[in-house]
Design a protein around this nucleic acid. Structure first.
Ligand SMILES: [Mn+2]
Ligand SMILES: [Mn+2]
Ligand SMILES: [Mn+2]
Ligand SMILES: [Mn+2]
Lengths: 222, 222
DNA sequence: CTCTAAAGTTTGAGTACTCAAACTCTTGAG
DNA sequence: CTCAAGAGTTTGAGTACTCAAACTTTAGAG
């Protein structure tokens, strides 16, 4: 089994590679995500390459191998199942569970994670709307678009909040901006780069485009 | 916070000190429990002493300080609450939960352990009958005596199985030897150092005195 | 009281991870 | 086409933990 540190590097690489248009991750970005210096990241990448978990040539981009991607997906599955468990079973606030899962994901055995998966009824998304990979590593990603791309008058449904910071999640929850809620764009001012959105049953709130970009809504709605 | 390694040393020391008549733990025993060499244990004890977690003079016995005992009790509380949770909520087998809790005990925050404690209704004993320290570190130990001290004809109740090995726990469970069960000593042969015990609703089984010594029963019963 | 076996210590080395700081390579703005 | 800024690398050092093996101290059997 990989160490806790290696698992964290792999999970970060999975996100970075999948976000990147080239499919490759960069060292400086990786180091920033993990909170280490770039020298530290360089030597770890070298070790991951020796273990055939990543492919990386000198001064070139980093990609996960099949083995590395599989291991990373496993960590991500544990992370998201744990978040779901902490919210649904232990009633923790969704703005705190990310940090908890960040540690627990390295301590749960397959036995425990399977039991949690069964207890929750094999959920397909976590409390933030992120898809949970299944046991075989497959992810069924619901198609979506950023709320910031919506126009005035649009009615849609929130599917995902793509920010793990407790502060943003707390703000979002206070305004009802959680996965599943019906959403109406009451106003959108391109000059002010702001939009007024209302979650069903809550008061409307002004969001900057940057903030609205962190919220994903259903793809095919008017 | 102490590292995972330090927490394991403290928990082992708590058990060793409390088992010892002098209240002091020995290095060789400690090293054996933790699966390290005695040289390794020596240097760790030196570091724990620097951190005021233990008191140990050269070539003398090791005792936990108040600070060390408190930290150790906290780990033990987490361990036993987790075992209880794994058995009651996740339906894991009681013979497997010790190893799982051994890792999880270092990854759960106070927030999570409090939520688990509440979910379980503040249990006072774990699945093996071991007492769970409360939040303040207090332990209410039920008085008991070893089953090996019982005589033929005794009827009593099992309160604790003092062995964390999966093999012994599996054997015990197969014969109904779990905390709470009514027990009858059908026969006791001092020469053979064996006794025939029956758990209510199960077939009788012959136990050597050594094995019966790992089972604790109610103190004040005939 | 002596002496040796067991308990405890020390030393030197190795792995995993980290940083700071000096360095080299690549790339795109001009 | 050039050359600096940014990306990536290397080096030297430090912390936490570990082992093997040589060593010293203690205590109890005789
Ligand atoms: Mn993590
Ligand atoms: Mn999440
Ligand atoms: Mn442990
Ligand atoms: Mn137990």
């Amino acid at each position: 089994m990989a160490t806790e540190t290696v698992e964290n590097y792999l999970k970060a690489l999975l996100t970075l590679c999948d976000e990147s248009p080239t499919g490759e991750a960069g060292l400086v970005r990786l180091a920033a995500v993990l909170g280490v210096t770039k020298g530290t990241a360089t030597s770890m990448i070298k070790r991951l390459a020796e273990g055939k978990l990543v492919k990386a040539e000198r001064y070139g981009g980093i990609t996960l191998t099949g083995k590395g991607r599989r291991a990373a997906t496993d960590v991500l599955r544990r992370h998201r199942l744990l978040e779901t468990f902490l919210v649904r079973t232990l009633k923790l606030d969704w703005s705190t569970v990310h940090a908890e899962a960040e540690r627990l994901e390295h301590a749960v055995s397959p036995l425990v994670i399977d039991a949690i998966d069964a207890l929750l009824g094999h959920p397909s998304v976590d409390p933030h709307g992120d898809p949970i990979p299944d046991k075989s590593g497959q992810t069924r990603a619901a198609s979506s678009r950023p709320l910031s791309a919506c126009a005035m008058g649009d009615k849609t449904r929130l599917v995902r909040v793509a920010d793990q910071e407790g502060a943003f999640l707390g703000f979002a929850a206070r305004h009802g901006l959680m996965p599943g809620v019906r959403l109406t764009v009451l106003d959108a001012d391109p000059q002010a780069q702001s939009m007024l959105v209302q979650a069903q049953g809550h008061d409307p709130v002004w969001l900057a485009t940057a903030a609205a970009g962190k919220i994903a809504v259903e793809a095919g709605s008017d």
